[in-house]
């Protein structure tokens, strides 16, 4: 995809996990751990996006955001925070952050959000969303496959919208829950499984090609082709030197 991300994070274990997780998706990542280095790196490297941890030892991550926005730099910034309360979220968004993610997060969600904020700037929202044979009319909330209308409930329509917006990406149960509920509440019934199964049966009845795939242990993905198995991505990444982090001190 050719995305370059600057990660501002002082926890080496988490930083490394994010770096590795992003490189598995061919997202290049550079790690800095202090506010000063971060401000300099944004200016010098011009990353496509910044992942910013708010709790840096001794420093407030928001200072990076303030400095970047003070220079009228529109680089998308995703805030990573352990403080999940409303005030904290609002404070970050008020300073000009593009998105926030509360720790602990799921890697697929981080990836989905990073791709979303890097795309956001050059994407024009039309009145329809399409993916392969699927078409969602955003104004009438009607869904078609190969021109044939599918009778979906509002919940299912909302789910398919999320899937189309994140085509070929893993959506976790938590992300789906959030889409349905606008809360992180998951409940104790198998809510997501039930809805995905219904959506899948409506989507795929009478058609050969499956569209929604279950990624075991991680979530679901909308894709025209069978998702790559895990082993395939293993080899090239570990040998690919260009994806190794370049650390700035």
């Amino acid at each position: 995809m050719g995305i370059n991300v600057l990660l501002v994070e002082d926890d080496p274990s988490l930083a490394n996990a994010i770096l590795e997780g992003l490189s598995d998706q061919n997202i290049k990542c550079e790690i800095v751990s202090t506010v000063a280095n971060a401000i300099q790196a944004v200016r010098d490297r011009r990353p496509d996006a910044v992942i910013l941890d708010l709790m840096l030892s001794g420093d407030n991550g928001l200072d990076v955001l303030k400095a970047v926005r003070a220079q009228r730099d529109p680089t998308p910034v995703l805030i990573l925070t352990a403080l999940g309360s409303l005030e904290n979220r609002v404070a970050g968004l008020n300073e000009g952050a593009d998105d926030y993610l509360v720790k602990p997060f799921e890697m697929p969600e981080l990836i989905a959000r990073i791709t979303a904020i890097t795309r956001r700037n050059n994407r024009i929202e039309g009145s329809t969303l399409t993916y392969g044979p699927l078409l969602l009319d955003l104004t009438t909330r009607r869904v078609f496959r190969d021109g044939k209308e599918l009778k979906l409930s509002p919940t299912e329509t909302s789910l398919i919208e999320l899937f189309i917006r994140h085509e070929n990406q893993v959506l976790t149960r938590k992300m789906l829950c959030h889409q349905l509920w606008e809360t992180n509440w998951e409940g104790e019934t198998n809510v997501i499984e039930v809805h995905i199964n219904r959506l899948r049966s409506k989507l795929e009845r009478g058609f050969e090609q499956p569209l929604i795939h279950t990624i075991r242990g991680r979530g679901y993905m909308l894709s025209e082709s069978e998702p790559k198995s895990r082993t395939e991505s293993l080899e090239p990444l570990d040998s690919d030197e260009s994806n190794k982090p370049t650390k700035i001190e």
Partner: peptide, 16 residues
Amino acid sequence: AAITSNVEVVLGRLPE
């Protein structure tokens, strides 16, 4: 967050 992310990455790379 660190545990989850690390496990997720490793899990993504392991064969079933």
